[in-house]
């Protein structure tokens, strides 16, 4: 499933990226720590499809739908 589909307070592991991920998105996600195998928690959703808030480790990022839809995740190990 996509990272964007993760519900509030749900945790998951990053399993990859969609094939059509733009390089610029991929690079930024990578340097911010969104890498395969990393645990990510969806902290908050905003109304009207606004950016969601994700936590990885001690970092918290806010991300819009177009970016979060490029990351695929799996719930449970």
């Amino acid at each position: 499933m996509k990272l964007w589909e993760l519900q509030k307070d749900q945790a998951a592991y990053i399993s990859g990226f969609i094939e059509s991920v733009p390089k610029i998105y991929f690079n930024r996600l990578n340097e911010l720590g969104f890498q395969i195998g990393v645990e990510v928690v969806c902290q908050r959703q905003s109304p009207f499809g606004g950016p969601k808030v994700y936590q990885i480790g001690d970092d918290v990022f806010s991300m819009a739908k177009d970016v979060a839809s490029c990351v695929t995740v799996e719930i449970g190990e």
């Binding site: 610029i24 998105y25 996600l29 911010l32 970092d59 990022f61 806010s62 991300m63 177009d66």
Partner: peptide
């Protein structure tokens, strides 16, 4: 073409 919106809180 647009760049991603990702921002550290």
């Amino acid at each position: 073409t647009d760049s991603p919106f990702i921002i550290e809180l």
